[in-house]
Design a protein around this nucleic acid. Structure first.
Lengths: 349, 349
DNA sequence: CGTCGTATTGGAAACGTTTCCATGACCCCG
DNA sequence: CGGGGTCATGGAAACGTTTCCAATACGACG
């Protein structure tokens, strides 16, 4: 059915070996021969079989994105991760790597086994996203020395690194913005404790507040889980305090939107009575009214950084053997956020 | 490095042929032998090489999703399609097929060539999304008789079909809702004319209005392009009419949100002075205030339907030869929408 | 003129599977 | 006890490439 390289070779009057060389731009092939083979290939519509190619070359030109689609619906940052996926795909398209989408459950019998997934498909690299529920599998993958990059997931290892928002810096941006407006009683609504963005933004908040010389009473730290409802509930608790905050930093936009809603339900006006800042700048942030002030991330840059990191790790010749140096992989890439001021922040009353 | 099937066979005291049969649940292999091979395989951590497997079996167990990530940012329905992608992935995970993400630009030199993309990766099926800019390539792909399913894209052919929202029915739902509330002057904001949802929702609107015995003056049809700004502009035009509508059906949620914003800018109150209905039920629809009344789609069901369709087409034995019947593929699956009543609709003043 | 390096090419092995075909063992039934 | 059938297994080919190695031809250099 499909035309193979032998056919091309035969019609060009050369051997398959030479045809292969001509098609793959090998140096040692006569110009005339190369031209002839190329012409024949085009004429016949020859398409190299990637499986055969991968089999013999021992490399697939493919990277995988392991991504728990089930988890994604339950962790409140779905739209953020979907945007990130698109960014990753776009960045990858320019490198010549193909992208395979894989789910933890799809192949693994009992505990998910990323090592097997990667091995089966001869993945040259793996991107990991929303797999917080499969940390042992991630560790095993790293230990197998397969190139890895975590997206918003702190994976480190000899051939592993990660990209993430600079949560410390982004949080500082938000706090400085609020402090600059004159707020002194600033509370925070945190994200899930099991996720890196959750803990880093929480710690970043304390650090930034300290840097601004502001105090954070324990009751000003309200636990959330990145979902809207948790933002609503947390804000209700904060507003019920004897001395409620005049501004709130929520670790995620969805919670921030929930906080705004809670404030309005309590009869308060945002931003007049209370200011709210979110994080991530998801699409809805610009659509709600008033528009949500938030810390935006550059998804495209993040996708690019992830791909750069992965390509760099894959290409690194220092660690090819089984004991190729116990070094850490390249340093994580922390992408700075930018403050997007919309309508939910103002000086305190 | 990796352990292959010969190793498993050797350690089990059988031939590779038998080992293969044991591992692939072939009927004719003794229970004891099978158990022995399975045990050895597990013990050795054997992982079959998918490329070799695909090469010899002439099937890859892989379907591709061709998806123009560039286009996706320019057509105003990004979040809808991203949700659909997730749904597709989830449905596919249960079938054993792997999913390869491909972009038109990634492989094609000049005009995008989906036939080549599919051939190179031995894709057993192809899902198509947001490729309105590559219709010739789509046609060529269909002509190549490779199983195809369009997502929100009307592809038909011997081995091709598509899934989509039932735009006619969904639009009727919206119009009936408005008419039921007592509205008689109902306008519409259309989507892009080049996209199926755009034209079907526009036609559906006229049909539903006629069925309700309502008139649609030409100036009540305002052109949009699915983006927020176009909804804003269209609504401004509608409100400037000598006899403005009391209700508006927008073909997409983003435009509907824009319409609400335009109404509020004009000093009107939604839904008191004017009602607005959208379509798609994207995430922001539930987050804006007032919540947008819209026609919701069941993404998960849509993803499932697409996968079912594709699997069915792939498995269809009637068309295997080059001239295997000029029949059309299975009928498209139109998924009914459901009306989600939130806060942007009310009886006319 | 002989020898050596270089450029170009072909033959054949290899990648890791699956599957076709043949072989032998075994059982059942006449 | 013989013949035909089924079952279990092994040998080897095949899938479509790339690449190692050898072979040839050619020019240059001593």
């Amino acid at each position: 059915m499909a035309v193979d390289i032998r056919e091309v070779a035969r019609r060009s009057g050369v051997s398959p070996a030479t045809a292969s060389r001509a098609l793959n731009a090998h140096p040692n092939v006569a110009d005339a021969t190369r031209a002839r083979v190329l012409a024949t290939a085009r004429e016949l519509g020859y398409q190299p079989n990637q499986q055969a190619r991968a089999l013999v070359r021992q490399r697939s030109d493919t990277v995988g994105l392991i991504w728990d689609t089930g988890y994604v619906r339950t962790h409140g940052r779905q739209s953020f991760l979907q945007d990130l996926l698109v960014a990753l795909k776009m960045a990858l398209a320019e490198t010549g790597y193909h992208l395979m989408l894989l789910s933890p459950s799809s192949t693994a019998a009992s505990p998910s086994d990323f090592v097997s997934i990667a091995a089966q498909h001869s993945l040259e690299g793996v991107a990991l996203m929303a797999v917080n529920a499969h940390l042992p599998a991630v560790d095993a993958l790293i230990a197998s020395r397969r190139p890895c990059v975590g997206l918003d997931l702190p994976v480190r290892g000899a051939r592993a690194s990660y990209v993430s928002a600079d949560n410390q810096q982004g949080t500082a941006l938000a706090v400085e913005h609020l402090a600059g407006l004159g707020h002194r009683r600033i509370a925070t609504i945190t994200g899930g404790a099991g996720m890196m963005p959750g803990v880093e933004r929480r710690e970043g908040f304390s650090a930034a507040m300290a840097a601004a010389g502001l105090d954070v009473p324990p009751e000003y730290v309200a636990e959330g889980d990145f979902f809207l409802e948790s933002g609503l509930a947390a804000m209700r608790r904060l507003l019920a305090l004897p001395s409620p905050p005049t501004a709130v930093f929520a670790a995620g936009d969805l919670m921030a939107i929930g906080a705004v809603r809670a404030a309005e339900e309590a009869g308060l006006s945002v931003p007049r009575d209370v200011s709210v800042v979110g994080f991530d700048d998801i699409e809805p942030a610009s659509l709600v009214h008033p528009g949500l002030t938030t810390v935006g991330q550059d998804y495209l840059a993040m996708g690019r950084a992830a791909v750069e990191l992965l390509v760099q790790i894959i290409a690194d010749p220092r660690v090819t053997g089984p004991r190729g140096g116990a070094r850490r992989g390249p340093a994580p890439r922390l992408l700075p956020g930018r403050l997007v001021v919309r309508g939910t922040t103002a000086p305190p009353a």
